[in-house]
């Protein structure tokens, strides 16, 4: 029950915290961290302006994307809580459900016939080409060291263990790979700048230029939920086992990640669009490194 409540109510807090930490870094007071909720509620009640070029895809895409992301979230362990659903090999399903959400939003962007949205769509999809192998490699490293179970149990089995140096290294490396993936998937600096004022330089925001009202509310919520999925995976990897303080540690880790996203955003500029893909390769190489280290350890008996 608790995970479902968290999936429904927690996501919109995430962009709120990021915005607030950015504001504080910039020396402003900033908006309330609950601002995204007000925004969401306001958008939900509004009618929509739809592009006259748009066909049926534009109308159903946000719904499908939300449904797919919600179902994927059911497989994610939320801190000390077990996931709602789970079976052996379910991470492939999670990966492809997220790909479905992304794919249908890309089609919706192309449906509007706007060149800006096409630009965002093609950039967004090209990231996927390197993120999916990275995800697979990360999971195969985890399975290699553990056993084939559901995503939730793989991750919790691998929770950091301070008494073993290997667990420490692999958990930290994998968490850093996941953190880069989080920055890409959540459309954050240095890959994408949600606050830029020029359509040419955005990715995720430019794909949804023509959305408004109800659909836009769903899209904001979906994006936040996707961020929660990645943040939860990272937090879970770093919680040392299950004990009394686990819920607290989960929320502290979540908070730290969000603040660090805010910090990155305040201290760094967005990278050049055409060189971004090279950075997206970093998670692939980190996970390859972990995998190779684990195999070498098994073979060489370090």
């Amino acid at each position: 029950m608790i995970p479902i409540v968290m999936i429904i109510f927690l996501p919109l807090l995430l962009p709120g915290i990021i915005n607030r930490s950015k504001a504080i870094m910039a020396g402003r007071k900033g908006q309330s961290i609950f601002q995204p909720y007000y925004h969401f509620a306001k958008l939900l009640g509004k009618d929509e302006v739809v592009s006259s070029t748009a066909g049926f895809i534009t109308r159903i895409a946000p719904l499908i994307a939300l449904a797919a992301t919600l179902v994927a979230a059911l497989f994610i362990p939320m801190g000390w809580q077990k996931s709602v659903l789970g079976f052996g090999g379910d991470f492939v399903l999670v990966l492809y459900l997220l790909a479905l959400a992304k794919g249908i939003m890309v089609l919706a962007a192309m449906d509007s016939g706007s060149s800006f949205e096409g630009m965002g769509a093609s950039r967004e999809l090209s990231f996927t080409a390197f993120l999916e192998p990275a995800f697979m490699l990360i999971l195969s490293a985890l399975i290699y060291n553990g056993s084939l179970q559901s995503l939730a149990s793989i991750i919790s089995w691998h929770s950091i263990n301070f008494h073993e140096v290997w667990s420490l290294i692999s958990a930290l490396l994998i968490a850093s790979a996941l953190y880069i993936m989080l920055l890409v998937e959540a459309a954050r600096v240095p890959f994408d700048d949600p606050n830029t004022h020029l359509e040419l330089t955005m990715i995720h925001e430019v794909m949804i230029l023509d959305y408004s009202g109800f659909s836009l509310a769903l899209i904001h919520y979906t994006a936040a939920l996707k961020m929660l999925i990645y943040c939860s995976l990272i937090s879970n990897l770093l919680i040392p086992g299950s004990f009394f303080w686990a819920p607290l540690i989960y929320f502290v880790l979540l908070f730290c990640q969000l603040v660090s996203i805010g910090l990155v955003e305040s201290l760094m500029a967005r990278f050049r669009m055409n060189r971004n893909l090279e950075l997206v390769l970093v998670p692939v190489s980190i996970s390859l490194l972990v995998m190779a280290a684990l195999i070498a350890r098994t073979l060489g008996g370090w």
């Binding site: 929509e48 302006v49 739809v50 592009s51 706007s114 109800f214």
Partner: peptide, 10 residues
């Protein structure tokens, strides 16, 4: 719940 209004693509 939602009523639609058509307009040009941005």
């Amino acid at each position: 719940c939602v009523r639609e209004r058509l307009s040009n693509t941005w």
